[in-house]
Simulated assay, not measured.
Amino acid sequence: MAIAKRSKLTWNELRASGRHGLGYEKIGRSSMKVAIPAFITEETPIISFRCAAMAPMVGYRGGRVFYVVWIDRAFDVYDHG
């Protein structure tokens, strides 16, 4: 399972894995199609990992932890361009 594999990698290893592999991509705030909660500050990067059936988990990193805020099953949380 991809989540289990990711749990064994460092953030540097995840960054190097590429967005279509085990890695992630940063999502620009202007690409978001939903309201961003106030606790996600302007300085906090929003990132996305692919998960079940390629549906992205979208959220933010806090230290060593990734906090999932959205599961984008319908691909309507951000512009996938």
Rank of each mutant, 00 (worst) to 15 (best):
V65C: 05
S7T: 11
L9S: 08
W11T: 00
P37R: 15
M54Q: 05
A55H: 14
M57D: 03
D79A: 12
S17N: 04
L22W: 10
P56D: 11
R15F: 09
V34L: 15
I47S: 10
S31P: 08
P37D: 15
E42Y: 12
C51Y: 05
S7I: 10
R15Y: 09
D79Q: 12
N12G: 15
P37K: 15
R61A: 07
I47H: 10
Y78D: 02
A38E: 11
R29D: 01
M32E: 14
A4T: 07
V69M: 11
F49V: 00
I3M: 08
L22Q: 08
S17E: 11
R64C: 06
S48C: 13
R29P: 01
R19M: 10
M1G: 13
K33Q: 10
T10P: 08
F75C: 14
A53V: 04
M54V: 04
M32F: 14
M54F: 05
R73P: 05
S17F: 02
A35L: 14
D72H: 03
F75G: 15
I71D: 01
R73A: 13
S17M: 04
N12Q: 15
F66Q: 09
G59Q: 10
V69Q: 14
Y24W: 12
A4M: 06
L14D: 00
K5V: 09
V58P: 03
E13Y: 04
M57L: 04
I71Q: 02
Y67H: 13
M1N: 10
G62F: 02
W11D: 00
Y67Q: 09
G23A: 07
K8L: 09
S7A: 12
Y78P: 02
R73C: 11
E13I: 01
A55F: 08
Y24R: 00
G81A: 13
K5I: 11
G63A: 02
A35N: 15
K8C: 01
A35S: 15
G23T: 00
G28L: 11
L9K: 09
I3H: 10
